[in-house]
């Protein structure tokens, strides 16, 4: 029992001071490393201070000293009990060409489910338009899609892209920010055990399928491919990857077949979620640039064949990136 608190504080003071110094050093520099001797010393100081806190809590009362030791133990606890790999200096190229595709492949099942939701939505949207063409006014969110496809193609080929002259950069930025917001929202709705994410994916699939069916039925397949492929082959997968991230979150929440506690599952998977949504943002920036500066130009200005070829090249590169990149670095990174 501590009767003489003054003496207790006096005797333990050097220990607390030394621990605080080490804690501050480790907190201030995320890249700081302890050698074996320092690590042993740090462990000793932590153990001794926790023991002091236990004694203070059990045998004596002094709110300020106790709070100080509690705070010190809490900070040291965060450092000593975090068993994950310590953060290293962020290397953007290494992350983009290594971590991102590896995480994508690791979570391929979620990507398949997300793709399935979009595909089912597309089939549904196509079926609706095939049954009743006038449904385009209900389904399509943009007014320029409400007119008949042939009419729109005629307008676009007569020089409608000029309407974007002088606002292309603004249009591109709006596309990037809007699409990124929607992608973030789609990922975040994973918190509804994935239901909200699937609904968003399905809804966007409906619009995509309906638009595609509308243009195909009007005999404007070439225009459709030339219009959608350059940006769509990046934008649509990016959106599905956002859905994949949402489903990864849902999987963490549900935890089926995973014996880790909920908090630990979420904490462990946060890095993968951040990686996926970071990758989505980059893909959407590219898609926004292409959509504003290429997709809106049509024949005779830009041949459809060229646009389609450009889109196919992008698709192959994206697929190769997601399937092959980072394979050599596997296992070197957490």
């Amino acid at each position: 029992m501590i009767i003489d608190l003054d003496r207790f504080v006096r005797e333990e003071r050097p220990t607390w001071q030394e621990l605080e110094k080490m804690v501050r050093r480790l907190e201030d520099d995320a890249l700081a490393r302890l050698n074996l001797e320092e690590a042993q010393r740090f462990h000793y100081l932590y153990e001794r201070t926790t023991s002091d806190l236990a004694r203070l809590s059990t045998f004596a009362f002094d709110p300020d000293t106790r709070r100080y030791i509690e705070s010190l133990v809490g900070r040291a606890y965060a450092l000593i009990h975090d068993m994950r790999e310590q953060p290293h200096r962020f290397r953007p190229m290494h992350w983009f060409f290594g971590t991102l595709p590896r995480v994508f492949r690791k979570r391929w099942r979620a990507f398949v489910v997300a793709s399935g939701a979009v595909l089912i939505g597309s089939l549904f949207g196509a079926a609706v338009i095939m049954v009743d063409e006038e449904m385009r006014t209900v389904l399509f969110p943009f007014s320029h899609l409400h007119v008949h496809p042939s009419e729109r193609v005629a307008q676009e080929e007569e020089g409608a892209p000029e309407s974007l002259d002088g606002v292309r950069a603004t249009f591109s930025s709006q596309l990037m920010t809007h699409n990124t917001r929607v992608a973030i929202f789609c990922m975040a709705l994973g918190i509804t055990w994935g239901f909200g994410t699937l609904v968003i994916l399905f809804y966007n699939g409906v619009i995509l399928g309906a638009v595609a069916a509308d243009y195909i039925m009007a005999g404007e397949l070439l225009f459709l491919l030339g219009w959608l492929l350059p940006h769509g082959v990046v934008e649509i997968p990016a959106f599905i990857i956002a859905g994949q991230a949402g489903l990864v979150l849902a999987h963490s929440l549900i935890g089926r077949g995973d014996r880790r506690p909920l908090g630990k599952r979420l904490r462990d998977d946060a890095g993968e979620l951040a990686t996926l949504i970071g990758g989505v943002a980059i893909l959407l920036v590219w898609a926004g640039i292409v959509e504003a500066f290429l997709s809106q130009y049509h024949e005779p200005l830009v041949p459809y064949g060229l646009k389609i070829a450009f889109g196919l090249v992008e698709l192959v590169l994206l697929a190769a990136f997601l399937i092959w990149c980072g394979r050599r670095g596997r296992g070197r990174e957490a």
């Binding site: 953060p87 929202f185 918190i191 951040a274 970071g278």
Partner: peptide, 22 residues
Amino acid sequence: QDAYGLRLRFSQVLIRNLFRAV
């Protein structure tokens, strides 16, 4: 603060802020 009292990670900070949308 990390809910387990551990060191806060960048990914945690990013996720909690992106979820403001919801």
